[in-house]
Design a protein around this nucleic acid. Structure first.
Length: 579
RNA sequence: CGGGGCGUGGCGCAGCAUGGUAGCGCACCUGCUUUGGGAGCAGGGGGCCGCCGGUUCGAAUCCGGCCGCCCCGACCA
């Protein structure tokens, strides 16, 4: 392709509305343009990369035995009412009516549609297992789209759905997809982690997210370099540092006046105690029930964990879990906010495991301007249950092996869910087992954000001059930079190389634009095409061209008659090594 | 939805406090000169100053409403 006639509108300056590098560079490089908030057009270069990523995903899905289909983007409300999600999904689901007034939505995901198809056709265990996938545009009316392609409202996604006879078979299907995702991430050259994750609104019994490591990622992920344990922050288990609390060392509880001292920091200064000698008491409202949560002063609450413990250990209904309001706190503790404590409190008290290891600690006194010091549980108050309730921090012990946890930020590019019978049951998608008995299909669903991958790739592969595309998904493999397009000898050599490389199956973009060489080099760096071959008058007269990989500083002078062989060989070698 | 910011040629911005009919850089067009890291000179084109309404002799500028975009938070996966 000739750059002179291709639609690649590059820009010298960052767009004013972009925050993260991937957004800035993709716009500057003429890969994408915004149409509305969270809605982007893909220009020729951007779309080429989208198609290449699709191809990699498609190959691995097919290799794993999945079959490609294409489902409608517009879906009737009747299906969503059947699964219950018409009311559950919330305003993220973009709804509208057709001319007859019937309700429809723009599909944010396709569990309902696929289940509807399958239930009509699958009768017997003999037709299983089956895995269907599609690559399609999804729409989610995100409350706050941001960061360009990272969190858009409209985006391209690959979604796959597996159907099995029995849980065991479903787990096998799940593992197959997990492995396929591993291969995809490897082929795309990602530095990533597969992490345990919460299943959220999709539901199901277990799930893993594939997180590409990047400082601009929206997720926090916890991992242990020793044993390989990895989980999303909201799910990450934390070990407990071993610590004994000998009874003979217990001091007597006393009450101290702490006027206007409310926060852990203030208390720490005022009493000259470290934050980890203080226990903070958070009052939560779980639906209509008030509960107290005890945490070490320097720890943060993990509400997902708290909700799980309240549900599983205390048998509470936890539709919603929220911090109590100021007035609710006063009502429960009899003191203004900032002075809550477990002593004398008559609501359920759950304590974080780290608190169990503490003694002679400081708590609020449930009266204004006062705290208790040298408090010990069991003697001064009781706890309903101790459990892991806090957020992990870097340096915390791993719950699995005791190693030291690391925290990274990640971009979620893939998510696999073992759904079980959540949809098949509510939508009556059954098969007949070997006994001729109807059973709900065991399902799994598996998503990959194709367009989000574009953002993730750029976040992970760029420098101050521009993007650096990994060879397998670069829009073109080679950029032929012609410095003197008016020089017949130079242009002739360029045309010849262009033809030979194209003939050899290499994807070449030739910069034959009539612009200064400065612009050519700047754009070359910006666009991030992996291999740059530069032809100038001086070089060509000496029978040489310059060869430079975008990801390396090394520039090589290569004889004109060797450049085609040399570059095709190096490209083949890299593609080989990458997959 | 709450808080904050912004909207002026294609892009990035100034002008707005103190109203007088729009400017800079880049990009674009023409010509000449240049040519290994965003070239120089000369000439030129392009703007309902987000939209609607109000105040005023006069509004980019003041007032009100609406729309759009960005950031923080809440919410959501």
């Amino acid at each position: 392709m000739r750059l002179s006639s291709m639609f690649v509108p590059t820009r010298k300056e960052d767009p004013a509305d972009a925050e993260v590098v991937s957004h800035k560079l993709l716009v500057r490089g003429g890969y994408i343009r915004m149409l509305a908030r969270g809605i982007y057009s893909f220009l020729p270069l951007g779309w080429k990369s989208v198609r290449k990523i699709e191809a990699v995903v498609r190959e691995e899905m097919n290799r794993a035995g999945a079959q490609e289909v294409h489902l409608p983007a517009v879906q009737p409300a009747t299906l969503w009412k059947e699964s219950g999600r018409w009311t559950e999904y919330g305003p993220e689901l973009l709804r509208f009516e057709d001319r007859k007034g019937a309700d429809f939505c723009l599909g944010p995901t396709h569990e309902e549609v696929i289940t509807d198809i399958v239930r009509g056709e699958i009768r017997s265990y003999k037709q299983l297992p089956m895995n269907l996938y599609q690559i399609q545009t999804k729409f989610r009316d995100e409350i706050r789209p941001r960061f360009g392609l990272m969190r858009g409202r409209e985006f391209v996604m690959k979604d796959a759905y597996s159907f099995d006879a029995g849980l065991e078979a479903a787990e096998e299907s799940y593992q197959k997809m997990y492995d396929a995702y591993d291969r995809i991430c490897d082929r795309l050259g990602f530095e990533y982690r597969a992490v345990e994750a919460d299943t959220g609104a999709i539901g199901g019994s277990q799930s893993h997210e594939f997180q590409v490591l990047a400082d601009t990622g929206e997720d926090e992920i916890v991992s242990c370099p020793e044993c390989g344990y990895a989980a999303n922050m909201e799910k990450a288990k934390v070990g407990v540092e071993p610590s004994e609390r000998p009874d003979e060392d217990r001091e007597q509880l006393s009450t101290v006046q702490t006027p206007q001292v409310r926060t852990v920091d203030e208390l720490s200064d005022f009493l000259d105690r470290r934050a980890d000698e203080i226990v903070k008491t958070l009052i939560y409202r779980a639906d209509e029930t008030m509960v107290a949560v005890l945490l070490r002063g320097d720890h943060d609450a993990n509400e997902l964990k708290i909700a799980t413990v309240l549900r599983d250990e205390l048998g509470l209904e936890v539709g919603s879990l929220e911090l109590a309001t100021d007035s609710e706190i006063e009502e429960v503790t009899g003191a203004p906010v900032g002075f809550a404590g477990p002593v004398g409190l008559d609501i359920a008290i759950v304590g974080d495991a780290a608190v169990e290891a503490m003694s002679n600690f400081v708590v609020g006194a449930n009266e204004a301007d006062a705290h208790h010091v040298d408090v010990n549980y069991g003697r001064d108050f009781d706890v309903t249950v101790f459990a892991d309730l806090r957020e992990a921090r870097a340096g915390d012990p791993c719950a699995v092996c005791g190693g030291t946890l690391e925290i990274h930020r990640g971009i979620e590019v893939g998510h696999v869910f073992l759904l079980g019978d959540k949809y098949s049951k509510s939508m009556e998608a059954n098969y007949l087992d070997t006994n001729g008995k109807a059973q709900p299909l065991q399902m799994g669903c598996y998503g990959i954000g194709i367009t989000r991958i574009i953002a993730a790739v750029v976040e992970q592969n760029h420098d101050e001059d521009g993007m650096i595309w990994p060879l397998p998904i670069a829009p073109y493999q080679v950029l032929l930079t012609v410095l003197h397009i008016d020089d017949e000898e130079v242009m002739g050599a360029a045309e010849s190389i262009y033809e030979q490389l194209t003939e050899a199956g290499t994807e070449v973009l030739i910069d034959d634009r009539d612009v200064g060489f400065g612009s050519k080099f700047k754009d070359a760096d910006l666009l991030g095409i992996p291999l740059r071959i530069t032809l100038g008058r001086r070089g060509v007269q000496n029978g040489e061209v310059e060869m430079k990989w975008r990801d390396s500083d090394e520039q090589l002078e290569v004889p004109l008659d060797e450049i085609v062989d040399r570059s095709t060989a190096e490209i083949a070698e890299r593609l080989e090594g990458g997959s």
